[in-house]
Amino acid sequence: MATFSIHGSDEPVHQARKHSADILVDDKLISVLPISLQSFSVKQSQHPIKIYAVVHGDSVYVQLHGRATRIDRVDPTRANAGANLNGGGISLAPMPGVVVSWLALPGSLVKTGTPLLVIESMKLQMTIEATLDGMLEELPFAEGQTFQRGASLARVCPDSPNGAAV
C-alpha cells in the first residue's frame, strides 16, 4: 500500500496498491493498461482515457486531457513534518533567483504586507512582503546574492500577544 497526494489539491491523500492486473485506489479497482513506456489507458465509466506519466524520484508527473499535474508519493511517517517549521513568518522563495534590493532592515518592526525585499527571477521582479506583524529577524541573502527555490528569504518573528515581554 502506498499513499499518494495530488499536487495543488486540498483533497485528502489517496491509498493505492497493485492488485493482480489492476490498481486498487481507495477501495475502487481500476484497470490500467500501459500503451507505451509513458502513457496508459484507464477504463472509466464512460470511455477509456489516456494518461501520460513519467516518474522522477518520489514524484510522478501525469497529464490527462491536456492538464498536467504532479503526484507525490507520501511517506506517512514523514507527513506534515515541517508543517510548523514555518509558523507563517518565513517567506520562502517561489522560484530560484537573485536578490535585487532590501526594502527593510533586519531588526525593524514590520506589518503584514510591508515590502521586505525585491527579488528577480527569469526577468521578473517580485516584491516579497511580510506575512505577519512582528520584527524582521533576518534577510539571509544580501543584495546580488542568488538563491534556490524554497530558500528562506526573510524571517519575521511574530509580535508577542498583548505586547507581553518574551
Partner: peptide, 13 residues
C-alpha cells in the same frame, strides 16, 4: 479522474 491519475502514478512508479 483523481483515482485514475493515482492509479497510473501507482502503476508507473
Amino acid at each position: 479522474d483523481r483515482r485514475a491519475l493515482v492509479a497510473v502514478a501507482c502503476a508507473a512508479s
